[in-house]
């Protein structure tokens, strides 16, 4: 556990020692604002809620989370620090968890910085704060799912650009799997159980459930499983291929 925290601390120190953290935070805040106000008609709708704000989170994460996760392992490989890290007395699992948690906390911080939005809707009207809280939780969990995918992809290569593109592709698949567009491809021929299976993989569907304010244990388990699965794959990839 101490090793996990130590790795996590080091990562966070790294984020804030470079412009990465500040650039990310600013872009995240500007983009959430732009999406909510312009594309989501935050004011004109006449409802006091944060739905237009949250609705675009999956799409924002699709690009911003891989931007954070691409360096997690690719950079360790490129700079050779992976050799330093894995000759320290810590397990691969501890290192993977430490790095994942650092990035996840960091995205949590970005979310926290959007709290003025929440304050604004409370000022404008009487929103259902329970629903908003649930949506925040759902958004953060979904970010964790994206991040686990990104971390795993980053372990595959020493090139951050390759890691970025791979992550976007895999995240995109997970994001879209529930949309009508994709489901139509399968509707005509696949049996119902496969359809349900594909649909239930979708980040969008589970996020939509939570952000309606219904925190269903199944949605929590879903995101937990997604994170667990990809981090496990991440550990396996590192164990199989530490050096190039």
């Amino acid at each position: 556990m101490n090793s996990v925290i130590n790795v996590m601390r080091r990562e966070l120190t790294g984020y804030f020692a470079t412009p990465v953290a500040y650039v990310f935070l600013i872009i995240f805040l500007v983009m959430t604002g732009v999406f909510a106000f312009y594309m989501g008609n935050f004011y004109e709708r006449g409802f006091a809620d944060l739905d237009p704000f949250f609705r675009f989170h999956p799409w924002l994460y699709l690009f911003l989370v891989p931007a954070i996760s691409m360096r997690l392992w690719a950079e360790e490989r490129r700079s050779g620090t992976i050799e330093l890290l894995f000759t320290l007395p810590l397990t691969t699992i501890e290192a993977v968890l430490g790095k994942f948690l650092a990035a996840w906390l960091f995205i949590g911080l970005a979310l926290l910085l959007t709290l003025p939005m929440w304050i604004t809707v409370n000022y404008l009207g009487q929103p259902d704060n329970g629903v908003i809280l649930a949506a925040y939780l759902g958004s953060w969990l979904m970010a964790g799912g994206f991040l686990a995918i990104g971390s795993c992809m980053s372990a595959l290569t020493r090139n951050q650009v390759v890691a970025f593109i791979l992550s976007i592709v895999v995240c995109f698949v997970f994001l879209l799997s529930g949309l009508p567009m994709v489901m139509n491809l399968f509707n005509s021929w696949a049996p119902q159980i496969v359809l349900d299976g594909i649909a239930s993989l979708s980040f969008l569907k589970h996020f939509a459930d939570i952000s309606k304010g219904v925190i269903d244990v199944r949605d929590l388990i879903y995101f937990g499983l997604v994170i667990g699965f990809w981090l496990f794959a991440n550990v396996l990839i590192l164990d199989m291929k530490k050096a190039d």
Binding site: N6, R9, R10, G14, A17, G80, E83, L84, L88
Partner: peptide, 27 residues
């Protein structure tokens, strides 16, 4: 104790921060 070839280290940290990290990792 190991010095890998090329002496890799986390470039964005200060010397003191980096050694602190290794010291803690070394339990």
């Amino acid at each position: 104790g190991y010095l890998p070839e090329g002496a890799p280290s986390y470039g964005e940290m200060t010397v003191q921060q980096f050694l602190g990290f290794v010291a803690r990792a070394r339990l």
